[in-house]
Amino acid sequence: MTRSFEQAIADFAPALPLAVAYSGGADSTALLLACARQWPGQVTAVHVHHGLQAAGDDFERHCRSFCADLNVPLVVQKVDARHAPGQSPEAAARHARYQAIDALALHGQLAIQTIAIAQHADDQVETLLLALSRGAGLPGLSAMAAQWQRGGLTYCRPLLQVSGIAIRDWLQTEGARFIEDPSNVDERFTRNRIRARVLPVLQACFPQFRDTFTRSSRHAAQAQVLLQEVAAEDLARVGVPPDVKALQALSPARLANLLRHWLLSAHQATPTSAQLEALTAQIAACRTRGHQIHLKVGQGFCVRRGKVLDWYNPHPLQPSSNPSCP
Rank of each mutant, 00 (worst) to 15 (best):
R3A: 13
R3H: 07
F5A: 11
E6D: 15
Q7P: 02
I9M: 14
D11I: 00
L16S: 05
L16R: 04
A19E: 03
V20H: 00
A21D: 03
Y22K: 04
G25R: 00
L31K: 10
G41P: 11
G41I: 00
T44D: 02
A45W: 10
V46F: 01
H50S: 13
G51P: 01
L52G: 06
Q53D: 02
A54M: 04
D57P: 12
R61W: 09
H62Q: 04
H62E: 00
R64A: 15
F66Y: 14
A68M: 04
D69N: 07
L70G: 02
N71G: 08
Q87A: 13
Q87M: 15
S88G: 12
A92F: 07
A93T: 02
R94Q: 04
R97H: 07
L104M: 07
A111G: 06
T114N: 13
I117N: 04
H120E: 10
A121V: 07
D123P: 11
Q124A: 14
Q124Y: 11
L129I: 10
L130G: 13
L132A: 14
L132G: 11
G135F: 06
L141H: 13
L141K: 07
S142I: 00
Q147S: 08
V162W: 03
V162Q: 05
S163E: 14
D169W: 01
L171I: 12
Q172L: 03
F178H: 10
F178Y: 14
I179S: 09
E180I: 10
D181Q: 11
D181P: 15
T190M: 10
R193G: 12
R193C: 09
R197F: 02
A204I: 10
T212N: 01
T212A: 00
F213T: 14
F213L: 14
S217T: 08
R218A: 06
A221I: 02
A223S: 14
Q224M: 07
L226W: 06
E233C: 12
L235E: 03
A236H: 13
A236I: 11
D243N: 11
V244S: 01
K245V: 09
K245Q: 07
L247R: 11
Q248N: 06
Q248F: 04
P252N: 15
A253C: 03
R254D: 15
L258Q: 01
R260F: 05
H267F: 05
Q275H: 01
L276C: 01
A278K: 05
L279V: 10
Q282R: 15
I283Y: 01
R289A: 10
I293K: 11
K296H: 15
Q299H: 11
F301A: 12
V303G: 02
R304K: 13
D310C: 03
W311C: 02
N313E: 09
L317Y: 10
Q318K: 03
Q318W: 09
P319I: 00
